[in-house]
Design a protein around this nucleic acid. Sequence first.
DNA 1: TCTGCTATGTTTAGGTCTAAACGTTTAGAT
DNA 2: ATCTAAACGTTTAGACCTAAACATAGCAGA
Lengths: 181, 181
Amino acid sequence: MAGEGYPLEQVASWPAADIASAWQRELPGVRTGSIEIITPLWRIAKVLADDRRRTLTELGVDPSTLDLLSVIRRAGPPYELTTREIARRTMVTAGAVSQRVARAEQAGLVERSSSSASRRAVAVRLTEAGHELIEPVVRQLLEHEADLIDSLSEDERATLTGILARLERALVSGGEGFGGQ
Amino acid sequence: MAGEGYPLEQVASWPAADIASAWQRELPGVRTGSIEIITPLWRIAKVLADDRRRTLTELGVDPSTLDLLSVIRRAGPPYELTTREIARRTMVTAGAVSQRVARAEQAGLVERSSSSASRRAVAVRLTEAGHELIEPVVRQLLEHEADLIDSLSEDERATLTGILARLERALVSGGEGFGGQ
DNA sequence: TCTGCTATGTTTAGGTCTAAACGTTTAGAT
DNA sequence: ATCTAAACGTTTAGACCTAAACATAGCAGA
């Protein structure tokens, strides 16, 4: 089922190169090189995000909840993280984390308890149901997304991985990923 | 001023490679290669989007409005596009376009008129104020974003441009960019 | 001990998006 | 001609996020 793949229905696009040369013509002398990187990067990010939303809908989760559960699960035993730490690692505001945790708690996937470290901190911990939900979802999601980027060759994937890592390091001092599975 | 650059304040990150190997350990045999592409890609997209929002705030526009104005401007004379066409090219729903146009119309940047082509279609056209706003904004934005990706070498930029274009074509049948300047 | 100051989590207000419902216009079929 | 289906734009309901205000808890220094 993960291998089936959606149509990824999208519409006719202008190549980013055309946009760049159009602006080059309108605003002579301006450096338009960023367009051919940033534009496709955003388009790809959006297409992948839309696809993930559809895939997760079929699996009965939403992207924000997956993001929350997986960052806790990835942290390893005892599978709990403070609100602040989750905010840092997922790159969303603490307020958003608070809301996400409230939703997931409502669904019985996580529990809040006072952290052992400090009293003002709140530990968010996976429940049994949370553990049982996330593993198969992540497995299927990873298989599906591996299929999606299979269109690139092995060499291209390796090159892309390297350049993206370099660009990310250059752009951010740090920055823990959101949606990092 | 475009060269100054923000701190791009971000927090400590786990490399995507670590996330991949963590899941590889938890779910042996699953293909985790997509993580090292999709995760940094989303992180970079978010950092760039946040940065653009800040830059545009200083210039007195918001990203959605820039997106709207620039897609019309790029279309060339007579600088008008139907709602549907804008939705296709910017990859947002027709409802969102309707709302964007309403805001921009309120600000005097665009005008609505019935399209010459068909009566049910609505043509959105740049006003004088819209024209005067967008040119300097795009110029400064492009200079700023060119600085941002300057950390990559000339070769890396060219390679990245090529692979991203290939990946985009593979993922979407078409798909006109949003935020495409 | 008291007094700021910082860190943490929550709540709220405001904004934008998507998805769906709706009414209208156009094109095609019979 | 009329009917049906599709396309278009708008509106609305619901979801989620950010930014800011808020309340509490710890910390550092006199």
